[in-house]
Design a binder for these strands. Structure first.
Lengths: 135, 135
DNA sequence: AAAACATATGAATATATGATCATTTGAATA
DNA sequence: TATTCAAATGATCATATATTCATATGTTTT
């Protein structure tokens, strides 16, 4: 069986796909390694989309609040002292990203964190903030 | 010794500070718990700022690349097939957020991840993407 | 010293996005 | 059934931001 380029591209193939020659680069070995090991573009784009959802103070506050208790829209609105509409819009964003789930009890919609990852991400991010400071 | 309100605010005090009365809320106990336990606003804002930096595909690609190797600006530019200027601007954002550090060797500036948190955050975010899918 | 090179930076622009306001949907209750 | 209430949604607007283009800075080499 012969290795195909998609399974194990040669250095030459990698550089070609990047439209560069070896002497355009300071460290072609490092570039090839990164190019070979990095996840596909679409995966990294998805990843950035997830972080983008964490990257808003209103949404982070909602997530932080939900890490202690399930809460309904009205109560989140009161807690954060923001309009019901603003909260509802952001909850939609959080739902789309699978960061929260909701259940309905009559007219009241209760939200909670979707899974354990959410808390983990918040916790590690918090560590970074504590160690490196804000700015 | 008497507890002061700043050390252990009463339920009444918490609700007052939120400008709500108990019957504005579905679950006042849950709201008070969240209000009491949540980190201060400025901490959560800082946290969201960190995630905001992760929340861009170009920056995530840079961070992913740097997780395999230290790389210089030119090589990142070639790897991502983006202009030197665009990369340099984003590296500045990453530096400001303490996600990468740089060293200079002559004219060449090499960048690497600042600390272990960066990789951890990427890894957990990736888990979420894999498990929940992109959209 | 001049030229070449790697990186950084400032201004400008186009796009993305968060909050508001007005309205709608859907469920409980009078 | 009409009303009230919680939540969701659509349109709009103001702000934030990522890239480009032009240029500056600083270093090495000729």
């Amino acid at each position: 069986m012969t290795k195909t380029s998609s399974q194990c591209p040669t250095k030459k193939e990698v550089l070609q796909s990047l439209h560069v020659s070896e002497n355009d680069l300071q460290d072609s070995k490092a570039v090839v390694k990164a190019a070979t090991c990095m996840p596909d573009d679409d995966v990294l784009i998805d990843l950035s989309e997830v972080f983008k959802v964490f990257g808003d103070s209103t949404r982070v506050k909602i997530l932080s609040a939900l890490s202690y208790n399930e809460l309904c829209v009205n109560d989140i609105s009161a807690l954060l002292q923001m309009s019901q509409s603003a909260i509802s819009h952001q909850l939609k964003v959080l739902r789309s990203a699978h960061l929260v789930t909701s259940r309905k009890d009559g007219k009241v919609a209760y939200y909670k964190l979707d899974d354990q990852h959410v808390e983990s991400i918040l916790a590690i991010g918090m560590q970074h903030v504590i160690e490196k400071g804000s700015k």
